[in-house]
Amino acid sequence: MSAVAEQIRIRSLTELDIARITAIDERLTGVYRPEIWERRVMFYLRRDPDASQVAELNGKVVGFMLADIRGGEFGLEETSGWIERFGVDPDFQGRSLGRKLFEAVVEHLKGQGATTVRTLVEKGDADLAKFLRAIGFQDASLTALEIRIS
């Protein structure tokens, strides 16, 4: 395990990570959707490439966390980090890659002046909620609401 851990590298997102992020998503969801990831990666790169991180194992991207920094949304005037999407290749889960990605993202967001990190979770996704609680997330005072309009 320690030999494997030595080869893990957490680094900033680049445009050449799109193919691997698409592949990880495909493994997790069973859907191949490169257009979505081209769009999302472009969004995060143009905002702040260092706020989003990927995990490499032996030079291959096996996990990613897309995040950015915002302020003034939903009446939250404080500078907040938002984590939108993340994923770890199922073959490489259980190696604390999600935690390592989160720590790298938080370190950058702190340096940018963020005091809080926020995210949203599907109510039925117990595994994801469990992971987020394990790395320190707690219930927020905000509640996500929506209305179908078509």
Binding site: V41, M42, L45, R46, D50
Partner: peptide
């Protein structure tokens, strides 16, 4: 940081 967008504006 800006160059990261430039590369994406080529690759995507």
């Amino acid at each position: 940081r800006e160059e990261a967008f430039h590369l994406a504006a080529g690759v995507i």
